[in-house]
């Protein structure tokens, strides 16, 4: 199990965290590759259904960020 890597579904707001991710990329910062980004127009778009659907379909974690 030592080589197991989690899959984390990330719902990122287009205007906030997605921008931050972009900036992190421009700045060549390093961070773990475990997140799978879903860009949403606003984090208010994220419904509880999405989080449950992510987990049900095999995500190990969910991260919602505004």
């Amino acid at each position: 199990m030592s080589d197991w890597e989690p899959k984390i579904v990330s719902f990122l707001c287009n205007w906030c965290s997605y921008g931050a991710a972009d900036l992190a990329g421009v700045g060549r910062m390093e961070y773990p590759p475990n997140i799978r980004v879903v860009r949403v127009p606003c984090s208010g778009r994220v419904s509880p259904k999405f989080i449950l659907a992510a987990l049900r379909n095999g995500a190990d974690g969910v991260w919602v960020s505004g």
């Binding site: 205007w15 906030c16 965290s17 997605y18 921008g19 931050a20 991710a21 972009d22 900036l23 992190a24 421009v26 700045g27 910062m29 989080i51 987990l55 190990d60 974690g61 969910v62 991260w63 919602v64 960020s65 505004g66």
Partner: peptide
């Protein structure tokens, strides 16, 4: 398993 956060686009 579930996390929430609030990050501005300037806060890389």
């Amino acid at each position: 398993r579930v996390h929430f956060s609030w990050i501005s686009s300037a806060e890389s």
